[in-house]
Amino acid sequence: GAGVAVTLMLPARGALAAAEDRIAEFTGGAATGEGGITLTTPEIAENGNTVPIEVDAPGAVSIMVLASGNPTPDVCTFNFGPLAGAQRASTRIRLAGTQDVVAVAKMADGSFVQAQNTVKVTIGGCGG
């Protein structure tokens, strides 16, 4: 059942383009590879205002997180110092609707790797 005000939005083209721009700024235009980075997100957000995410990229210098479907895609950038025990971090983020969360890691050798997951933001209700 669902007697609710609904503000589910699909990512606008503009938001996706903005995310592409942020990635290009972060990488200086270099191509991003796959593998070597794990992005963990819930499949379905329990609450779009606080969605737990975790990034893990062994050997990374920094990891940028983007919400490709938010009005502005920036979320955060983790920079790892010499005493980081792992290049792994968790936080909680706001998602304006169902969209891909993107993580891009800059590795120590200057290369970049990328991962993305779809997080569904749903109205909820009903069940078995």
């Binding site: 606080t50 919400a67 979320v75 025990g85 971090a89 968790s90 909680r92 706001r94």
Partner: peptide, 23 residues
Amino acid sequence: QNIIDVTLAPAISTNPYFEFEAV
């Protein structure tokens, strides 16, 4: 010595939470 340095945008939730590892 630095462990972690994070830049936050408004898309970080109310009551910012971080979990990470340190040596």
